[in-house]
């Protein structure tokens, strides 16, 4: 508590951070540990929403709104649609790993990643020059700052993302299209036959 008083953290900020942080971790644990994929997707909504709260806490209001609309709204709904289409198979294969010792290795390497991040930082979290232009401390609002940055400095990447989105839409349509020339042979696509022949 002495440390908190020394850094002058106000109580509402602290409570917001703690509640949102706990929600982030619990949601992530839910995604990893839940058996039912639907429950995992719902836990992910909790994490995404708590991250949006942390965005607001750090004066990134526009990104918080986009996070809720795009992630918690669109992406999770897309996940749920696919889960429903595929059918919820609660039985996950829990037998032997194909790659021997994959799970213990995963635990060890993840622990190494976490400890390494914390060790490398060692109290020196953000190095580099403070920004002089487009400072987040200027009086203009966050949305206007972001708009100015995107539509002037980052205009070319912004245009490139529109191309990327078109490519993604076309790719998705091509991927889920059924491959049949005749409408009657919809149950037996060609690739399936060749695959069964290979077996």
């Amino acid at each position: 508590m002495i440390d908190l008083l020394a850094t002058q953290i106000t109580l509402p900020d602290l409570i917001t951070f703690l509640v949102a942080g706990i929600a982030v971790v619990l949601g992530a644990l839910g995604v990893v540990l839940m058996r039912n994929p639907v429950h995992s997707a719902l836990s992910m909504i909790m994490t995404l929403f708590a991250v949006a709260v942390l965005f607001i806490e750090q004066d990134a209001q526009f990104l918080a709104a986009v996070q809720v609309i795009v992630y918690a709204g669109a992406i999770v709904v897309l996940f749920l649609f696919v889960i429903m289409l595929l059918g919820v198979d609660k039985k996950e294969y829990l037998g032997k790993d194909k790659l021997r010792g994959q799970r213990p290795l995963a635990f060890i390497s993840v622990l190494i990643i976490f400890v390494e991040i914390l060790t490398l930082a060692r109290g020196n979290w953000a190095t580099g020059a403070k920004a002089t232009v487009m400072s987040t401390t200027s009086p203009i609002s966050n949305v206007e700052q972001l708009a100015r940055a995107i539509f002037t400095t980052y205009l070319l990447p912004f245009e490139a993302t529109s191309v990327l989105l078109i490519v993604a839409v076309v790719g998705a349509v091509v991927l889920v299209r059924r491959v049949d020339e005749k409408p009657g042979s919809a149950e037996q696509p060609k690739e399936l036959e060749t695959e069964s022949e290979m077996k």
């Binding site: 750090q58 990104l63 986009v66 979290w125 580099g128 920004a131 487009m134 400072s135 700052q145 972001l146």
Partner: peptide, 15 residues
């Protein structure tokens, strides 16, 4: 973005 007072970080999150 908040620690360095630079809007560039938030722009990157947008992308």
């Amino acid at each position: 973005s908040r620690m360095l007072g630079d809007i560039g970080g938030q722009t990157l999150v947008f992308f």
